[in-house]
Design a protein around this nucleic acid. Structure first.
Length: 215
DNA sequence: GACCAGGCACATC
DNA sequence: GATGTGCATGGT
């Protein structure tokens, strides 16, 4: 670890913790619901995902077995509020096919897979990219992996931690090399970054009021 | 009405 | 390898 960077990253974390408190991610009742949410939230406001999840619950199809059976068009109609509904319905089905063919539809089988193999396997599913994969690994399956999203990139590059041109893997390595290797920390850190971004780091940053202005 | 949200795949150069 | 584009609803 680079002590200076490590201290700064921890200082940011402590400031966010103090400002916002525990975030308790992921907001879901089951690991399967977390996986579905991770796919539905791709480039989409969480409030819209909640509507789609609610529709799936009302229709009684928020389980792997039920979602495996449901017609693609019906699935698309239920998740409509989350946007990109046609492509996301296919992505959910792609995951389900993968989940049954390789892991017999068992979350236990999925989470007991070797983490490196699991990451490669998830990334091989069409519709699961780096962020969705890592969100599933961390928040649904409890694996020690740091999730990077557009906010993390935007905020920390603005604060000169790394260049705006840095790619996903480089940024992930940056955090994982410079933070204590702790799942709970990874969980809260990413959630707190998203929480902060909702207030201050959209297209028109209000950096003067941002709690990180002192870092 | 414009802008954007907890991305990803694919086409093209 | 870098850059551009389609996918789409709903809130500010």
């Amino acid at each position: 670890m680079t002590p200076n960077i490590s201290n700064k990253l921890l200082a940011v974390y402590k400031t966010l913790q103090k400002t916002y408190g525990p975030q308790g991610w992921w907001p879901a009742d089951t690991p399967f619901e977390t996986i579905v949410g991770a796919i539905l939230t791709q480039n989409t406001a969480w409030a819209n995902v909640e509507k789609a999840i609610s529709n799936l619950k009302m229709a009684g199809v928020l389980s792997a077995e039920k979602m495996r059976r449901i017609d693609l068009k019906k699935l698309a109609r239920l998740i409509r509020p989350a946007g990109y509904y046609n492509i996301k319905a296919k992505r959910l089905k792609n995951f389900i096919s993968f989940f049954y063919s390789k892991y017999n539809g068992s979350i236990g089988n999925l989470s007991s897979e070797n983490p490196e193999k699991l990451r490669k396997a998830l990334l091989s599913v069409n519709g699961i990219g780096p962020e969705t994969c890592d969100s599933i690994m961390l928040y649904a399956l409890g694996k020690r992996i740091f999730v990077i999203d557009a906010y993390t990139k935007r905020i920390f590059s603005r604060h000169s931690f790394f260049k705006a041109s840095a790619d996903y893997h480089a940024i992930q390595k940056y955090f994982m090399d410079n933070l204590p290797k702790n799942i709970k920390l990874y969980n809260e850190y990413h959630a707190l970054v998203v929480r902060l971004a909702k207030d201050f780091c959209r297209t028109k940053p209000a950096c003067d009021k941002c709690p990180l202005v002192i870092i």
